[in-house]
Simulated scan of single mutants.
Amino acid sequence: MSDLSTTPTRSAPFRVAALQMVSTPERERNLEDAARLIAEAASDGAQLVLLPEYFCFMGFKETDKLAVRETYGDGPIQRFLAEAARRHGLWVIGGTLPLAVSEPSADRERVLNTSLVFDPQGREVARYDKIHLFNFEKGDESFDEARTIRPGGEVRTFDAPFGRVGLSVCYDLRFPELYRRMGDVAMIVVPSAFTYTTGRAHWEMLLRARAVENQCYVLAAAQGCTHENGRRTWGHSMLVDPWGEIVAERADEGPGVVAGDIERRRIEEVRRSLPAWRHRVLA
């Protein structure tokens, strides 16, 4: 018989954690680092953890990810996420991993950049394929994700014990219409690998803007430091509340855990005092 006193309720505080990483070109080493951070967050009481974009692999070349892509439904990365959720009895949102495109006629040289969500029993409950693909040119920095990634096309959410959670990835953060299409959510997650240049300029303001616009929490897990491939990412993983206040943030570069509580009463308080969500005219 289950102990009902330990079952989370919709009104009780729900602890979440963003895991900041510095991923490498070695998949197994990244999974070991992720396992350590998940265990650290779980020991601190986290009931949901979010890994960053590319948590499992960041190669020397964009095409390197093709070598570790997995078929949807099975593979070492997917098994790792399911087992971590089951072992610690928490929700795991697996940042992103490269999945093979399933259609026979699809590009053979591109993958889907996919977030998978596993419940505390290790069951996959949601999938989101990144829609907006990053393209940036400034000085020596040059990125074009469309060369190796096929965009997704569907908005995705899932139901957690404290409410609905909206799924997005990194560059999606710049497109507020995506979040409006999620409907009424209690939290948005943003696993990311923002560059140092764009992160320093826009990361915090965009996260806080999405929280204020949607009057919900925003949990953002980032890559953060100089990677073995020479790329430098911004870090500053954080949790933002519905008023745009930063609940918790990692100010340092490097791996670590950022944790805080989701409180339904805070969402209700903000929406009651400034009912912008209810006043929407254009949907």
Rank of each mutant, 00 (worst) to 15 (best):
Q215F: 01
T198Y: 05
D252A: 15
L239H: 07
V258D: 04
R250S: 10
S168K: 02
E141A: 08
T195A: 10
P275H: 09
T195S: 15
D241W: 03
L167V: 08
W243M: 09
T157V: 14
V165P: 00
R264T: 12
I149Q: 02
T195N: 03
D252H: 09
E253W: 12
P191G: 11
C170T: 05
L173K: 07
A193R: 06
D172G: 06
M187T: 02
H236G: 04
E245I: 09
R231V: 14
S237N: 06
W277E: 05
G235C: 03
T226L: 04
A251Q: 15
L173C: 12
A186R: 12
Y217N: 02
R266V: 15
L167G: 06
E213R: 07
R181Q: 14
A186T: 10
G183A: 11
A209R: 10
L178N: 03
L207N: 15
G230N: 11
M182G: 02
Q223M: 08
V155F: 10
G230P: 04
I262G: 08
A209W: 03
R231G: 11
Y196P: 00
R164L: 03
H279F: 13
P255V: 03
R278M: 10
F175I: 10
L167M: 14
F162L: 04
R164T: 15
E141F: 07
R265H: 07
S168R: 00
D261Q: 05
A259D: 08
E213T: 03
R231K: 11
R250P: 00
F136I: 12
R272C: 11
F136M: 11
V155E: 05
A251G: 09
Y179L: 09
V247W: 01
M205H: 06
S142M: 06
E204R: 15
T148P: 00
V218L: 14
